[in-house]
């Protein structure tokens, strides 16, 4: 019953997203939602390692950049012209991201403490940025690379990108949903709560984390490639950008880390907000200040994110109701906000 209702809501959301660009067809309107959808994919994918297991990667922008450079380099070397074909090449971005994720995950996950993991993942991002700057022969350094552009014109230009992002977002959310409901996903959530205990009941924690890390790189690689194609030109500092990681973590966190709905909600709140902020404040500086302040306020007021906060409220309300109704005492979980609100 509950599952059916969720399915229905999801269906309505997807239909709305499909209809949207036909109703609001201006370039501005489609661009904003395009970015939001791209970040739905990115944040949901990051959530598989960062949210489910609690291993906060601050270097997943490396996969974004790898995808971006993949499409630029492949299009250039194989002489692929702009057009629908390049979206297939974008898939290669995911493959390349996964290939790099293997050694990267292997090293970062050996460290055993989450703090060192976080720092090494940050290092990855900067290393790739340095490589992109320095490997002049391959990446053209700070001059960046162009991606061949299609000859779609006017407001239609955005449409193929919009739908590519929509498909990627839907598939990534389905992937996360699938994992969340698999035994593998249960293992990941167990690792987040207590890694040693998980090992003690037979979860191969190393394999679980490693697989989650690699899987989560793939949609981000593809997203990076789509982004690169859309923006027509890439530079080391725009695709290997720490702000991307910050936005990912913040989206996931804002909605609710480790929940399925959280990253979606977070991306849809944060992306438009960020774009409007940059658009209206103009002066570089104020956007950073406002963004930072916003972010602090949210964290301090809602330390577990939107979705878990709501879930916890309704759950408590329901328990209270049940207690009032029932004659025999319903076991009331003692109110412990830290422990409450399991992932949904």
């Amino acid at each position: 019953m509950k599952r059916n209702r969720m399915g229905l809501i999801a269906l309505i959301a997807v239909v709305a997203a499909v209809v949207y660009p036909f109703v609001f067809s201006s370039t501005e309107a489609t661009t904003i939602v395009f970015y939001a959808l791209l970040y739905v994919a990115i944040a949901s994918s990051w959530n598989i390692i960062g949210g489910f297991t609690g291993y906060i990667s601050l270097g997943h922008a490396a996969f974004f950049g790898l995808g971006a450079y993949t499409i630029a380099l492949v299009a250039d070397h194989l002489g692929i012209p702009g057009g629908y074909g390049l979206f297939l090449v974008a898939l290669l971005g995911g493959v390349v991201a996964a290939l790099f994720a293997v050694p990267m995950g292997f090293i970062a996950l050996r460290l055993r403490t989450i703090h060192s993991f976080v720092i090494v993942t940050i290092a990855y991002l900067f290393m790739f940025q340095l490589l992109a700057f320095n490997l002049l022969g391959v990446t053209n350094g700070s001059s960046g690379l162009a991606i061949p552009q299609p000859n779609w014109s006017g407001a239609f230009f955005n449409m193929p990108f919009y739908f590519a992002a929509l498909v990627l977002a839907v598939l990534t959310v389905l992937l996360a949903y699938w994992i969340r409901n698999s035994r593998f996903g249960l293992g990941l959530l167990a690792i987040r709560d207590d890694e040693d205990k998980a090992a003690g009941v037979g979860v191969d924690t190393w394999k679980h984390k490693f697989a989650a890390y690699i899987i989560s790189a793939v949609p981000i690689g593809i997203a990076g490639a789509i982004y690169a194609y859309f923006s027509s030109y890439i530079y080391p500092q725009t695709v290997f950008d720490p702000m991307i990681d910050l936005t990912i973590v913040l989206s996931a966190f804002l909605g609710g880390m480790g929940t399925l709905l959280g990253p979606i909600l977070g991306a849809f709140i944060l992306q438009p907000a960020q774009q409007l902020l940059t658009f209206y404040t103009g002066a570089a500086g104020w956007d950073l200040v406002l963004f930072g302040v916003l972010f602090l306020v949210v964290i301090l007021l809602m330390p577990s994110g939107i979705v878990p906060t709501i879930v916890e409220r309704t759950r408590r309300a329901r328990v209270r109701e049940a207690v009032q109704k029932a004659d025999e005492t319903v076991p009331t979980p003692d109110a412990n906000p830290a422990a409450g609100g399991g992932p949904r």
Binding site: G54, L246, V249, F253, S304, A338
Partner: peptide, 9 residues
């Protein structure tokens, strides 16, 4: 709660 993630943010 979640000090690792939150302190980074």
């Amino acid at each position: 709660q979640d000090r690792v993630a939150l302190s980074i943010l």
